[in-house]
């Protein structure tokens, strides 16, 4: 049963990682919320509304990080046909879409009091909206075909095409005049954020990432079960269980 060998190894690895990632997620999110809402100062210009940043910015980072992972996973699926890659891509897309939606909603809630508008069509905001639609398109394509392998292939192509949007989002604030301000944290320079504000920001970012790891492991497990179900149903329908026609591509 070479087909199941890989998922079995993955399931063991996942079961070993899951308690750790979940623990890190719970602890970082609890500490992050404490610092974000109680033990951090108000901003000199934005007052208490700066606390929205501790949700908005980590959500934006997750939206980009998950999309980059999605594109990399899709490339692995298309080039090496790794049996788990399609399942991982399918498992992560809705989580990425949820973080992108959170980023857009909190950005709107922050923009209204600070900028004076819920939404503008500047390069940054528009490219993030495009990212959200890319996620939705990926989810839709994955479910659009009767044959799940065809759906996965179409979705993988979309994910790879959409990856050009990632640098556009990242550098939009530097390339064009936008209403959105440029990045505060760059690798080369000291961050333009006070340490007391950086702490909740990073804690929330670690918490979101660890949360994503746990959720992803859980969702890949679900996808593995779903694939087994399809195989078993196919074999049941075919009456005589022939191992060679398991309906799955290796």
């Amino acid at each position: 049963m070479h087909r199941f060998a890989n998922p079995a190894r993955f399931l063991r690895l996942g079961a070993a990682i899951m308690p750790w990632s979940t623990g890190v997620a719970v602890l970082s999110l609890a500490a992050g919320l404490y610092f974000a809402l109680f033990a951090s100062p108000a901003d000199y210009q934005q007052g208490e509304s700066v606390r929205i940043m501790y949700v908005h910015v980590p959500a934006a980072w997750m939206a980009l990080f998950i999309y980059t992972s999605l594109a990399a996973t899709s490339a692995i699926a298309l080039v090496w046909k790794h049996p788990l890659a399609d399942l991982a891509a399918k498992a992560m897309a809705p989580v990425g879409a949820a973080f992108t939606a959170l980023c857009l909603v909190t950005g709107s809630l922050w923009g209204q009091p600070m900028w004076g508008t819920w939404w503008v069509w500047d390069a940054r905001l528009t490219s993030v909206l495009v990212l959200f639609f890319l996620y939705l398109g990926h989810i839709a394509l994955n479910n659009a075909f009767d044959d799940p392998t065809r759906g996965a292939r179409a979705a993988a192509v979309l994910a790879i095409v959409g990856v050009v949007n990632v640098p556009i989002i990242k550098f939009s604030v530097d390339w064009w005049n936008t209403l959105h301000q440029p990045a505060s944290i760059t690798r080369l320079a000291a961050p333009a954020i006070d340490p007391a504000m950086l702490r909740p920001l990073l804690l929330m970012a670690i918490g979101f990432t660890a949360y994503f790891v746990s959720i992803l492991l859980l969702r890949i497990r679900t996808e593995i079960l779903a694939r087994k179900l399809r195989t078993l149903r196919y074999m049941q329908g075919a009456e005589a269980p022939a191992p060679a026609v398991a309906g799955e591509r290796i």
Binding site: Y44, V50, M114, Q181, S184, I193, D194
Partner: peptide, 18 residues
């Protein structure tokens, strides 16, 4: 007809700014 504020990428407590 509409005025929007643009803010910079610096975040700090009022005491630090002062």
């Amino acid at each position: 007809s509409e005025v929007l504020a643009k803010h910079d990428e610096n975040y700090m407590p009022p005491e630090v700014a002062a």
